[in-house]
Amino acid sequence: MMQYVQETDSKIIFYLSSAQPDPFPATVEYGTRPSALHKYFFSPPKYSSLVREAWETSSKARNQKVGKQARTLLSLIQEVIGSFELSGFDLGSLPPFKAFEAEDESVYLEWIFEHARVGFALDPNPEQSGWFLVSDRTLGNANAAGLLSGLGVERTFLWLFNFVNPKA
């Protein structure tokens, strides 16, 4: 499981490389260390609704190769958000992911915020799958898109999340 830290003022969440030392060394007397929580030890019920609807839509996708890709991504997102919650990070309220199947059998996942939209476009060829982000004037009229194969899914999601997180 990846480890994260949240900057106190900005609420931005940073990824901690396993090569880095633990910034908050703790002496464990009882139970597990806060930084070493494992996804299978606790379920994140508060955020299960985050991906449920999109999960069901992707389960019905005509092309299950793409549907499986979507569910793998949703699992990772739920795991990451769950680990944020377990670490006590300030996340605000997060809207659920929506999923849509396009005419060409690709699946789009979209996360809709008041002033921004973040999404993933999943293609039968995973090399062509990508992400996108757009915001209105309130969040600076940002627009960006890219492939998931470059930076890595988890780091890409973390970057997108920090942009749209209402608490950040």
Binding site: R117, G119, F120, A121, D123, Q128, S129, G130, F132, V134
Partner: peptide, 15 residues
């Protein structure tokens, strides 16, 4: 136009 950019355009129109 690539699929992620098509998604970007669709989301932008919705926004």
């Amino acid at each position: 136009v690539t699929k992620p950019v098509r998604g970007l355009i669709a989301s932008s129109l919705a926004l």
